[in-house]
Every structure is written in C-alpha cells, then in structure tokens.
C-alpha cells in the first residue's frame, strides 16, 4: 500500500473521517495544558513582566505561518506533477489557516511589541517578512476565489504558489539587506532563542505541538469540505448538461 492511495478522494474521505476525531482530541489534550501551563504556571520574567507569556501564542503561530506555506508549496508541486486532487485541495485548505496564523503572529507581535519596544510596529526584517508573507497568502487565496472552474483554479494557484515561493524567499533576503542597509545595527532584536529559559521552554514545546495538531485537524476538516465542494460543482455541471 502506498501513500498515493489516499490521493483518491474516496479513500481520503474514509480515512480522514476516522482519523479526525482522534487528531482533534490530541490537539485539545496538548494545546489546553500547554496554554494553561504557560500562562499560569510559569514565573514572571524579570525584565518583561507578564507580557512575555504571549510567546505561547506568538511563537507557534509564527512557526506555523511559514511551515504552512512550505506545505502548500509541496502539495502544489504534487498536484502539478501527479495531479492528485486531494493534494491541491489540501493546499487551498491550508492557505486559509496559514493566513490566519500569519495574522495572529502579526497581531500578537504588535501587542507584545508595545510594552517591549514602545511601538506596535517596526520595519524590522522579521516583521516586514511576515507582512510580505501575509500579502502572498492574500494573493494566493484571491486567485482561488476568482476562478470558477476547480481544475483551472488548482493549476493556476499551484503555478502561483511555486513562483511566489521563489519571490517570497527573495523578499526575505531583500528585506534583510534593506533594513541593515539603512538602519545599521537594528536596535530591535526579535531573536527569541536568547531569551527563552527552560522554565518557559517546555510549555512552549507543548504549545507548538498543540498548534501543529490543531493545524492538522483544521486542514483535514477544510480539505474534506473542499472535496465536497468539487463534488458539488461537478454535480451542478452534470445537471446543467442533462438539461441541455
């Protein structure tokens, strides 16, 4: 049995239907304790106060925002090469979650940034990159929404995703260069690795795992919905053709 078996929508629907409740349960079982531990049972940091606890949402959502785009790139490539419908529908499903994660990361970042740096927004390379990533997500989703035929939409969005990935990567380097260039030695560092001590690290890991599981659960639900939408679209066309 190969992994490609599940490229068949019927098999995917059957299996995902069975797996889904377990994934949801696991997501809840990691996310809730992780959040509670992180928010209520970690000490207040000396310099940062309570505001530091936003990392339990900020860091996982930021990680997911990038990883989801990477997953979309892989699934788009699979669609282009092997034309597996489940793959490209999963990419579409993931985009909505990815853009939500990006917005969460941006907003929590702004909320955190205010007490930390005294500003909601700075054109720091990392912040700027996330804003750009948000724009790429918007474009990808807008293209999906604009095209009526599901297969054409799948093809074109996949091409956009592949080309977009290259330009997103270029933007990342460009932004790094741009900021260093004008404001030598950025005064704001968003590098969390330096700040995170072990007490915060373990609940953070749990939260990250929770976000991953939450994503898997959501993407399964959305993919199932997308597949049903394709089915609905085909049924509609057939009805129209019978009348003709």
């Amino acid at each position: 049995m190969s992994l490609w078996e599940f490229a068949n929508p019927v098999k995917f629907m059957a299996l995902s239907g069975k797996v889904l409740p377990w994934v949801i349960a696991l997501a809840v079982l990691t996310l809730v304790p992780g959040m509670v531990w992180g928010f209520f049972f970690t000490p207040e940091a000396v310099n940062f106060g309570n505001s530091v606890k936003i990392i339990y949402i900020h860091v996982p959502s930021a990680m997911m925002a990038i990883n989801i785009w990477a997953m979309m790139l892989v699934t788009s490539l699979i669609w282009i090469v092997r034309r597996h419908h489940v793959s490209v529908r999963a990419a579409k499903a993931a985009a909505l979650i990815g853009v939500t994660m990006t917005v969460i990361a941006l907003i929590t970042g702004a909320i955190w940034g205010e007490p930390m740096w005294g500003t909601y927004w700075a054109w720091d390379p990392r912040l700027t990159s996330f804003l750009i990533l948000f724009l790429f997500y918007l474009g990808y989703m807008a293209l999906w929404a604009a095209i009526e035929d599901p297969d054409t939409a799948a093809d074109l969005t996949s091409v956009l995703c592949i080309v977009g990935s290259v330009f997103a990567l270029l933007s990342r380097y460009a932004v790094n260069f741009w900021n260093q260039g004008l404001h030598q030695g950025a005064s704001l560092s968003v590098d969390k690795e330096e700040h995170v001590a072990d007490v915060y690290y373990l609940p953070l890991l749990l939260c990250i795992a929770g976000f991953v599981l939450l994503f898997v659960a959501l993407v399964l639900i959305r993919t199932r919905t997308e597949l049903r939408l394709v089915r609905l679209h085909r049924l509609e066309i057939r009805e129209r053709m019978k009348d003709a």
């Binding site: 068949n8 929508p9 019927v10 034309r83 597996h84 419908h85 597949l227 394709v230 089915r231 085909r234 049924l235 057939r238 053709m241 019978k242």
Partner: peptide, 22 residues
C-alpha cells in the same frame, strides 16, 4: 452519457475517478 463517467480512463489513472467525486 453523464452517468457513464466511470468508463473514461482519466489521465490521473483512476478509472473510477469521477465516481470519487460523485
């Protein structure tokens, strides 16, 4: 024939491809 979609060997290689959606 709208009902006979299954006979078409789709380029995905799934003969029952349309059935998967219908």
């Amino acid at each position: 024939d709208p009902k006979r979609g299954r006979d078409v060997q789709h380029r995905d290689g799934y003969a029952d491809f349309d059935e998967a959606f219908l």
